[in-house]
């Protein structure tokens, strides 16, 4: 016998989901649709006519060598920040989960960076990393080449990666801690009784058991790094020096909002959307296979 709760009246169900559908439509499909339209036209910022140009905007985007540079930088940024923030988030979560001395306080404190808005964090880090005023100033006095994010692109990139990872590690920490605490204590206690050391328990029991969370964090970290990096880049480097920290999302902001090239920015955001879809697809296709959902 089939046991399934259904509404007798179809319209009632529809009525319940209508608000959600409306929200998704207004805040997602509508803007995406507008962006799609702009990407194929040349839109004048103050309105008054837009011309259909087919794939011209996309052709121009892909013909630009700086754009390819921007894609590579964004991928590097995504890989580095995902690795760093997940590693640190996990490390802190494992430590807190063990219930070391004072862990209640740390558990609260470690979450805070995520509550700091990106531009505020970026402002603080800009000061910390300023070659003449920050932590490296003494070393910079000896050797000006040692640290100069205003001129050295690698330094600037390192700086934004650290700032972003600092903030995002806190986010990873919340999820990893939740996942670790969901592991039944009895499993861990049993292995402890069998004489497994702390590290052995982490690698053989805890980590395998939280792989679903791990996978989720990987997907989310990579997607977010494409979108959320904007505020940090804007405050810390403005995409410079040269174009060394011009990530895809910053370029979209600059071309669209500062440069008023709405169509070029729309085409770029469609491309960014496709890149993220492809990346996510591959992660689900190839990495999720290794994930065991209990």
């Amino acid at each position: 016998m089939e046991k399934r709760a259904t509404f007798a009246m179809g319209w009632l169900g529809m009525a319940f989901i209508l608000p959600q559908i409306l929200l998704v439509f207004i805040f997602f499909y509508w803007p995406t649709g507008a962006a799609m339209f702009w990407a194929f036209t040349l839109e004048r910022p103050w309105g008054g006519g837009n011309e259909w140009v087919g794939f011209d905007n996309f052709r121009q985007v892909f013909a630009d060598r700086a754009y390819w540079g921007s894609i590579i930088r964004s991928l590097m940024f995504a890989a580095s920040t995902a690795t760093l923030s997940m590693a640190f988030g996990l490390l802190l979560a494992v430590a807190c989960d063990r219930g070391l001395k004072g862990y209640q306080a740390f558990r609260t404190v470690f979450v805070w960076p995520y509550a700091v808005v990106a531009p505020a964090a970026a402002l603080a880090f800009r000061f910390i990393f300023a070659p003449e005023a920050g932590i490296f100033s003494a070393l910079v006095k000896q050797n000006p080449e040692f640290w100069n994010p205003a001129q050295n692109g690698y330094h600037a990139m390192t700086m934004i990666i650290i700032c972003y990872s600092w903030k995002y590690a806190a986010y990873c920490f919340i999820f990893f801690l939740a996942a670790l605490q969901a592991i039944p204590r009895s499993v861990i206690e049993a292995s402890a009784l069998d004489g497994a050391s702390v590290l052995r328990r982490v690698f053989d029991i805890q980590l395998p058991l939280i792989t679903p969370t791990f996978f989720f964090m990987l997907v989310i970290s990579i997607t977010d790094s494409f979108q959320d990096s904007f505020g940090i880049v804007d405050v810390m480097t403005d995409g410079g020096p040269g174009k060394a920290t011009e990530l895809l999302v910053y370029k979209i902001y600059f071309d669209g909002f500062r440069g008023l090239d709405y169509s070029g920015a729309a085409a770029q955001s469609i491309v960014l959307m496709l890149i993220m879809m492809v990346l996510t697809f591959f992660q689900f296709r190839y990495i999720e296979r290794r994930v065991h959902y209990s």
Binding site: G153, G239, P241, G242, F254, D255, R258, G259, L260, D261
Partner: peptide, 20 residues
């Protein structure tokens, strides 16, 4: 697009001064 042009110039100058 003068805002973009100013940025292109600035980016070029940064690269010039960094000997790139």
């Amino acid at each position: 697009g003068f805002v973009q042009i100013r940025k292109e110039m600035r980016d070029a100058l940064t690269d010039i001064f960094a000997n790139k």
